[in-house]
Amino acid sequence: MRPFILVAASAICLAGAASADTITHAMGETEVPDDPQRIVILTNEGTEALLSLGITPVGAANSWLGDPWYDHIAPLMEGVQPLGTENGINLELVAALEPDLILGNMQRHEEVYAQLSAIAPTVMSERLRGDWRVNYALYAEAVGMAEEGAEVLAEYDGQVAALSAALGDNLAEEVSIIRFLASQIRIYQLDSFSGVILSDLGFARPAIQNVEEFALRVGRENIPDMDGDRIFHFTYDNGNGEGDAATSEALADPLWQSLSAVEAGRVHQVSDTVWNTAGGILAARLMLEDIAEIYGIE
């Protein structure tokens, strides 16, 4: 457990929530309670938003990896009810918690919005992928902590600016981001969690990745398109070993071995949780730490 997460999640002064307000969100407008005490969060990035504000939800969507939480948030999730994956929320469990506010995402939960709204006031962010900062501000507003949320983002922006300055000429490297899964390989572009952070830092990207899209879904025949001055790659494996096996096969492929970044020894395996799956502010801070360590920055 990296110590700064616990500090960041507990050091925010918990000022009282503002007066009741009408929140405009992806599914319309919702009157939120003055001081919500029993908050349910239905996305992984939303869970990290709440934790960074010092809020422990009563229920949350399961982490995509972990049992049921990612290692880096597990110490902060004691007593939280797992509610199923983001796209498989157990509505009966949500209702049983008697929440006074539900936070979800239209991309995941549009079809159950009416049912969620019948349980408690429900606020929906619009998209996932690269929108974690937009969503963060909405969640902070919904829980009556817009100012505190802005302070958290400003502190994060300061970390980004400091790391960017320290990276200096390294930012000219065209950085390639690759994700291996059991059935496909993804070449990540700008509208992705890691893509947004790399852009904020000022890194260059290979031309095929330097577009405002999410990702290209390809096979091993497209490995030549994965090259860059430096490659970061990560693997999604749900525990059955298929993702790890697919990664091993790809890395052993002669096409991969012939990439210029591979031949130069500028390839780094990083955490799928941190660089992609968790998708929130705590993971973003960990990704900054990873980059600093890889580039030898204190």
Rank of each mutant, 00 (worst) to 15 (best):
D71Q: 15
H72G: 08
G243Y: 08
W64H: 03
A95G: 02
Y295C: 10
H233C: 10
R266K: 13
N87E: 13
L51K: 06
D34G: 13
A182G: 11
N105P: 13
T22R: 15
L286K: 11
I187V: 07
G228C: 03
A172Q: 11
T235W: 00
E298G: 02
R230A: 14
I89P: 03
L14P: 04
S164N: 03
E110N: 13
T56C: 02
A15H: 05
S10T: 10
G195F: 04
S125V: 10
W275K: 10
G54I: 11
Q184P: 10
A161T: 09
G265L: 02
D21W: 10
L97E: 08
D157Q: 05
S199I: 06
P68Q: 12
V270D: 01
D244H: 09
A246G: 00
M27H: 02
L101K: 07
T47R: 14
E29V: 07
Y70R: 00
G59K: 13
H25M: 01
L14A: 11
G296P: 12
Q209F: 06
E151V: 12
L83N: 00
L128M: 12
F203C: 09
L65F: 09
L171V: 02
Y139T: 00
T56Q: 11
Y136H: 08
Q209H: 07
I185V: 15
E98H: 15
P254L: 11
S183C: 07
Y136Q: 05
F4D: 00
L116E: 00
A172M: 01
W69P: 05
H233D: 07
V175G: 05
I39N: 05
G79C: 09
E78T: 14
E148V: 01
D131H: 14
L198E: 07
A61E: 14
E110H: 15
R38P: 07
F193C: 02
A11T: 12
A74I: 00
S260V: 15
E110I: 06
S52P: 04
A166P: 09
D244P: 04
A252F: 06
D229L: 01
S117L: 07
G54K: 09
D225V: 03
G228P: 03
T30L: 02
L181K: 12
A182Q: 09
S63K: 04
V211A: 14
S271V: 09
M27T: 02
S117Q: 13
A162M: 10
V196M: 05
E173R: 09
I12C: 01
L288A: 05
N44C: 07
L286Q: 14
A245V: 11
I23Q: 08
